[in-house]
Simulated scan of single mutants.
Amino acid sequence: MVELTWDRVLSWRMRRQHLDRPEGTTAESIVGRLCGVQAQVASAADQAIAARLPAPVRGEAAKALDRRKLIKVWAMRGTLHLLTVAAAPDCLSLVAAARTWEKASWQKTFATAGQIAAIADATREALDGRTLTREQLASEIVRRTGDDSLAELLGSGWGAVLKPLAWQGLLCNGPSDGNRITFTSPRTWAGGWAGLPEPGEAAQRVIPAYLGAYGPATPASFDQWLLRGGSKKASLKAWFASLVASGVLTEVSVDGVAAYARTEDVDDLAAAEPVPGVRLLPAFDQFVLGPGTRDEHVVPPQRRALVSKAAGWISPVVVAGGRVVGVWEQDDDDKVSVTLFPEAGDIAGELRAEADRITGGAGRLVVDRLP
């Protein structure tokens, strides 16, 4: 078994996640490499892309959406993501494979499987070649099902009720209508949409893509990223075993921890050199979400409460040497306030340069250090 070190692995991840900011990087290539960018907070998704571009240009996510190069849809972990049109069917297939909406606890909390099936049929018809607001879609579903009891269900916590439709490839976000959210079907949004592949086929592409940005990793880490551990364990085991058997994946050891890497990446992982400088990454950045905040090699366990906060908020983070070494925030006056962890070391000069990149040199940097 090949022996690797976490220092090499984290340096490799920095480059694989475009945090070395290579020339020619685009919003689409970033989203593709990261296997999606969480977009619950649109500004954070835009900042995540800007943080990886050679120049910190804002608004690239919206432009890529306007060009239909990306799709915005509820996907991994039930959260809203930007995905490339090419990768979306595979990701949605694996999320849908868990059939979360058929579990007794989900049905008790949100809607029965029968109600979801009826809503799905109505949505498939309502969004065919059309874009509707939330209210319009709810009205169409009630009208097409002839079930007035669905009106209350759709009007209360109905984002959760519509997620299974997104996972099945029936619904995605449409173009913005002022401040109103709209929905359409992926088939309407993206020409040539062929529907979702079988999960086993999708796994042959999604797992290597994930490991190409966040590897080496265990099946459990992959499943936490995908569904917070909700995948069927037999399926997960079979997916990884098939990829090992075909030579796509190789088992490695990272400072004594067994994990899987893409076979093509092993030599680069063993030789990876550090990425110089500091990175100020936005809230909900994939550098943290990909491996998860419980990955102690990325987020020191004693600092996790500062990164993963109440109500699912993931703080903006300071990254140096491939590890989270602090948190930060920016106010409306472009003041960048950084709280460094004691293990951060002397990175004052690098912080100044990164803060200037974000604010165009017009901001004020304030640095505190935890005792």
Rank of each mutant, 00 (worst) to 15 (best):
T123P: 13
L249R: 03
R124H: 13
R68F: 04
I119T: 09
D90S: 15
P282Y: 12
I207A: 10
K103H: 14
G157D: 00
D295Q: 10
D332R: 14
H81S: 09
T84S: 14
L281Q: 04
V254Y: 01
T109G: 11
H18I: 15
P274W: 07
E198H: 11
W101K: 12
W193L: 12
V299G: 08
A111D: 03
Q47A: 07
S176H: 15
S149D: 12
P56R: 12
R134E: 14
K63T: 06
T25H: 09
I347L: 09
E251N: 11
A50V: 14
D285I: 07
G200I: 04
L92A: 09
L281R: 05
A344W: 06
Q204R: 08
E264M: 00
L269T: 00
I314Y: 10
A353Y: 05
A283G: 02
S231H: 04
D121H: 12
L127D: 12
R58C: 04
G192P: 04
A104T: 15
L137G: 06
K309N: 11
P89D: 11
E251I: 13
N179G: 06
E3F: 02
P175C: 09
V206F: 11
D147M: 09
D66L: 06
G229H: 09
G169T: 03
V248S: 02
L19K: 13
S139P: 00
E102M: 07
L80P: 00
L153R: 13
G230H: 11
P274Q: 09
R77Y: 10
L70E: 05
A50Q: 03
P291N: 13
P371F: 08
L211W: 12
L82I: 14
A39L: 05
A113L: 12
L170S: 07
T133S: 05
A97E: 13
A355N: 13
G247I: 07
G178Y: 01
D147T: 14
D46H: 07
S308Q: 04
T250S: 10
D177S: 15
G290V: 02
I116M: 12
A61W: 04
G195L: 13
A245E: 09
F183E: 11
L249M: 02
A344Q: 02
E125V: 05
K69Y: 14
Q224N: 07
W12H: 07
E3G: 02
L211E: 06
G36I: 08
G322P: 15
P274G: 09
G191S: 12
L154R: 06
W225T: 06
A113P: 01
P89S: 05
T5M: 00
Q17A: 10
G277L: 08
D332N: 15
L94I: 09
E135Y: 04
A202N: 15
T188W: 13
W101T: 11
G292Q: 07
D334S: 13
L226I: 08
R8F: 08
A234W: 11
E264G: 01
